[in-house]
Simulated scan of single mutants.
Amino acid sequence: MKNWAFGENSLLKIILVLILLLCMVEISLRILLGLCNAPLYVSSNTYEYAAAPNQDGRRFGNHYHYNSFSQRSLEPDSSKTIILGLGDSVLFGGVQSDQENIATSLVTNHLKDIQMLNISAGSWGPDNCAAYLREKGTFSAKGMFLVVSSHDAYDNMDFEPVVGLHSSYPKHQYVLAWWELLDRYILPRLRSYFSKQENLDPDQKVLQTIHKKGLVFNPGFNGLKTISDSLNIPLIIYLHAEKAELLNKKYNNEGKEIIQWANLNGIKIIKELEYNFVDSDYRDNIHINDKGQKKLARIIVEHLP
């Protein structure tokens, strides 16, 4: 009987220790990594998807904030001159960049009488941006600044469902941080390692240079020009260089088509390759890090109307 009692007590202690360890891991993952606090997304039948409105949190040590219009900005301030910052994940920044370190925030904080709204999302193209503005309005803006990459020339909307189906576009939070770590980060990497079949989300496809091949030049370019002409406000295009283009010191054929379109339509285009970007300004093949965001902000300030 004594041995059985001793065994019961030992098992109980082991269970209590395991529970304590799980609780410590859970709390640590939430505090240190911001797990169970990912930015959430909503679907749209006009512009595919966007960050869910009215979000504020921390993820991987970085602060993120989305206003009531799903913009990575504070609420539009009518007392300031509004500039529309339009683009994809380069401008969006993601949770790898703190709210204060993305280019639109740097511009807004530097120019006290100007607010640059961040209207963007991962893998958005000009057609997503134009559709968003047609639905939400233009917020009495005095200018439009579009950040694109060469692959945006034919990266047209296809309305393939992504929200709630891909880990980069969640619509609900995980209940447990350790399960998010396993399910969102560890297990997918193990599956991709042992299997050649991958269900990639749009951002991952771009990183692996798997681009959409639209049949026509992205209609969003003309759509944004139509909006800017109707409001009599300037549209400026900023052509971001992917790292391969940076190393080759020239844009690919799709980038050249964007330049040609801008020149034919009298649109001012800023070519990033004409500025002093270097390899250390990138955090992967496409996206720029905080150092690159600072350079982008300085260029925006230089060219704002």
Rank of each mutant, 00 (worst) to 15 (best):
E180D: 06
S10A: 09
Y282M: 01
N199C: 13
D56Y: 03
F60L: 12
D183G: 00
S280A: 02
Q208S: 10
A141T: 07
L12M: 12
I14H: 13
C36M: 08
S79T: 14
L29H: 03
R59H: 10
D203S: 01
N37E: 12
E254D: 10
Q71I: 12
I258S: 00
I102Q: 02
H172M: 10
L207S: 09
A51Y: 15
I299M: 10
T46F: 02
R184G: 07
I286Y: 05
L231I: 06
L247K: 11
F145T: 02
D77L: 04
F221S: 03
G292R: 01
Q55E: 08
I83V: 14
A103F: 09
D56F: 05
R30C: 09
F217R: 05
E48N: 13
Y66K: 07
K142W: 14
N232L: 11
N252M: 00
P219L: 00
E302R: 15
S10M: 14
L117N: 08
M1Y: 05
D77A: 02
W261F: 05
N222T: 06
K205T: 04
K249N: 12
A121Y: 11
Q115F: 03
E180M: 07
V301Y: 06
Y238N: 04
K136Y: 10
D281V: 02
S68D: 04
